[in-house]
Amino acid sequence: MDVIRLHAYGPAANLRLETLPDPVPGPGEVRVAVRAAGVHFIETLLRQGRAVGPHPAPALPAVFGSEVAGVVEAVGEGVPAGLAGRRVVTGAASSGGYASRAVAPAGSLTELPGHVDDGVAVAMVTTGATTFGLLELAPVGPGDVVLAMAAAGGVGSLLVQYARRAGATVVGAAGGPAKAARAAELGAGLAVDYREAGWDKRVREAAGEVTVVFDGVGGELGRAAYGLLGRGGRHVVFGSAAGEWFFPDAGEAAAREVAVLDGIGHLLGRDGGTADLRARALEAAAEGWLTPLVQAFPLAAAAAAHAALESRDTMGKVVLVP
């Protein structure tokens, strides 16, 4: 099979296409012929040998990726033979998803309706589930003014769509005019480029006080977004695309009656895991009322995909296609 492996920590160019024997599914496992595999920003940090939260630097050689969609082509002991030939998606590929074949626990599979695209399925199985988890933590509806940071990203683009459907006033902030325009197309009533000086002032003048911030960016941009919240607002932290997390000072937030909510902590500590969130996300995609942005790269171009993520030149969910 074709596989992307990392033999040394460092730049994206260290990701190399190799040929390895097909993995063999063990008891309770299946082998999936991969049609799309998900790529996460966190993997660009792990590739450099950095530990990220609960994720340690990987042992080398490493194959990244846990999200794959494709067709079951072989089953291990104890797995019903009828699974073979089914189109499925999983977020638990144990052999690594950056490959043309991957092994995963049979219990982790979700069968896909015929009309759901493989890339869409990969986008929703984790990124979509994350979105629903954040909205569970900070529900939105009519009367809310929602600021979605990184609004053309995987989670941000889904938050924009959901918040608009829920009746909220939606502000989408993204890096660059093309991304801001995409946020507007997705339903943001106001879309701004946060690379421009004074973007936060523009939001304040046009939208008034923000009631909910979804911050997947962090750094000074996260700080500026926090400054737009009115009394009693909610600041949901779920990412650090700017290179550092931003959590507001607890005393200051309390004085402003702002609730600071840890989105990733909520997802990791959620009773019962996130299987129900994955199901809801995939159902929303199947029904067509949430449409993830998907940017595909050939499997052989995994290094280019990582480089594009690091330079913030992507929109939506990045997937690799063998």
Rank of each mutant, 00 (worst) to 15 (best):
M1H: 07
D2H: 13
V3C: 05
A8E: 14
A8M: 10
G10P: 08
P11T: 07
N14W: 07
V24G: 10
G26D: 13
P27V: 10
G28C: 14
E29I: 05
E29P: 07
R31F: 03
R35V: 09
H40G: 11
T44Y: 08
T44H: 11
R47C: 09
P54Y: 11
H55L: 15
G65E: 03
E67D: 15
E77D: 14
L83H: 08
G85H: 07
R87G: 10
V88R: 04
V88C: 08
P105A: 08
G107W: 03
G107R: 14
E111V: 13
L112S: 04
H115E: 15
D117H: 10
G119H: 00
V125H: 03
T126L: 15
A129E: 01
A129R: 01
A129D: 03
G133K: 00
L135N: 03
A138P: 00
V140W: 06
G141K: 09
G141W: 04
P142R: 15
G143F: 13
D144C: 12
V145I: 08
V145A: 02
V146S: 06
A150Y: 01
A152P: 01
G153C: 11
G154N: 09
G156R: 01
L159H: 09
R165H: 13
G167W: 09
G167Q: 11
T169V: 14
V170R: 02
G175I: 07
A183R: 03
G187R: 06
V192R: 10
V192S: 14
R195P: 00
A197R: 12
G198R: 12
K201L: 15
G208C: 10
E209D: 14
V213W: 04
D215A: 12
G216S: 11
G218Q: 05
G219N: 05
L221A: 15
R223M: 07
Y226R: 01
G227C: 06
G232C: 11
G233E: 04
G233Y: 05
H235A: 12
G239H: 02
S240C: 09
G243A: 13
W245T: 14
G251D: 13
A254K: 10
A259G: 11
V260T: 06
L261C: 08
L261M: 12
G269C: 01
T274N: 02
D276P: 00
L277C: 02
L277T: 03
A286L: 06
E287N: 14
F297H: 07
A302Q: 00
A303I: 10
A303P: 04
H306Y: 13
A307C: 07
E310L: 15
R312S: 14
V319W: 05
